[in-house]
Design a protein around this nucleic acid. Structure first.
Length: 283
DNA sequence: ATGGGGGCCTGCCGGC
DNA sequence: TGCCGGCAGGCCCCCA
C-alpha cells in the first residue's frame, strides 16, 4: 500500500487511539509476516502504554513505556484498521474478523487496532527504544525527504557519478528514505527529468531542483490523505484522494496534463517496475 | 562498490 | 463459468 504519505496518514490516524493509551491485550494470529515476529511479542505488548507514535521513512514506530519500541511496516498491502469506537468518532467499524487479520491490539479503552496484510510483505518487530536507529531495517536509511538534511547540495552529491537511472536512484532508500514508485514517477514528471536518465548525467542545477519538487509532491499527497489505490483506506476508513492528482502514475496512453503539451503518458519497465512519464516534458 | 534481476505472497482484472 | 498471465504502493538477497 504505502509510501511515505500513506504511512504518515496512517500514523496520524492511529495517534488519537494509540498515543497515551494502554494495550490491554495483543492477539497474534500467526508466527510471522515477512519475518518471524520477535519472541513473546504478544506478552511484551500486553499492559504497556504507548508513549509516542513516530514515523521514519515508511516505518511506524511506537515507543512503549517499558523501554521497547514497536516497529510496524505495511509492506505492499498492509493496513491498520481501527474499530471498537470508544469515543464514537470512528464511523467505519468492522467488528467481524477479516481474512488476513494477523495482529489485533485491544486497547484498554475499548479501541481495537487490526493489522491486516494479505500479501504479508509487512513486518513487526520489537527493539530497545534507545537503539532503535540501529535496527537493521533503519540503520542504512537516508535522510527524511521532508527534513532539513535533505537539501540540494546533498542530493547533487549523492547522484554524482552514479550510472544508475535516476528512477532507481530515487527509489534507493539509502539516498532518500520514503519515496516509492508512485511519488518518484510524479516527482520526475514535475521536475521534467526522464526516468531513464543516468543519475550522474543530470546537471547540478536540475539535480538540486529535484529537492523542492520532491518535498512538494509529498506535502501535497499528505495534505490529501495519501493515495487510495484499489481498496486502500486510511486508518479511520476514509479514502485518501491524491490519486486524482496523479500527472503520470497509472495514466498510460492518456494525454499529458501540462498546458500546451500534446504528449501522451508512456509506460516503461525499469528493474521490474512500471515507470510512467511524458517524453515531451521529461528529458 | 555498483547495478540488475529474482523472489517473497495474495488478489484482482482482462482475455480467451 | 473457469483458467491463465500479468500486474500491484516494498524490500532483501544474490550474482556478475
Amino acid at each position: 500500500m504505502p509510501e511515505l504519505p500513506e504511512v504518515e496518514t496512517v500514523r496520524r490516524g492511529l495517534t488519537p487511539v494509540m498515543e497515551g493509551q494502554v494495550i490491554a491485550r495483543a492477539d497474534v494470529n500467526r508466527p510471522d509476516l515477512r519475518w518471524p515476529f520477535p519472541p513473546d511479542m504478544a506478552a511484551r505488548l500486553t499492559g504497556v502504554r504507548v508513549e509516542r507514535l513516530r514515523r521514519r521513512s515508511k516505518y511506524i514506530l511506537a515507543d512503549l513505556d517499558r523501554g521497547e519500541t514497536l516497529l510496524i511496516h505495511l509492506g505492499m498491502s498492509g493496513r491498520m484498521l481501527i474499530s471498537g469506537d470508544p469515543l464514537g468518532q470512528f464511523v467505519h467499524d468492522h467488528p467481524a474478523a477479516q481474512k488476513h487479520d494477523h495482529v489485533v491490539l485491544h486497547m484498554a479503552d475499548g479501541a481495537r487496532i487490526t493489522f491486516n496484510d494479505p500479501r504479508r510483505f509487512g513486518a513487526m518487530d520489537l527493539m530497545p527504544t534507545a537503539t532503535a536507529d540501529a535496527h537493521p531495517l533503519l540503520a542504512n536509511l537516508g535522510p527524511e525527504p521532508l527534513g532539513n538534511a535533505f537539501d540540494g547540495p546533498y542530493l547533487a552529491q549523492r547522484l554524482k557519478g552514479r550510472n544508475t537511472p535516476i528512477k532507481a536512484a530515487l527509489l534507493d532508500q539509502r539516498i532518500v528514505a520514503g519515496l516509492g514508485n508512485i511519488y518518484v514517477c510524479e516527482a520526475l514528471y514535475r521536475a521534467g527529468i526522464a526516468p531513464r536518465r543516468k543519475a550522474g548525467r543530470i546537471a547540478r542545477a536540475r539535480a538540486e531542483a529535484l529537492v523542492p519538487v520532491i518535498r512538494d509532491v509529498l506535502s501535497d499527497a499528505i495534505a490529501a490523505g495519501g493515495s487510495s489505490l484499489r481498496d486502500y483506506r486510511q486508518a479511520d476508513g476514509e479514502l485518501g484522494y491524491f490519486q486524482h492528482s496523479f500527472d503520470v502514475y497509472g495514466r498510460e496512453g492518456q494525454p499529458c496534463r501540462r498546458a500546451g503539451c500534446d504528449g501522451t503518458v508512456r509506460r516503461i519497465v525499469q528493474s521490474g517496475r512500471s515507470s510512467f512519464y511524458c517524453a515531451q516534458c521529461q528529458r
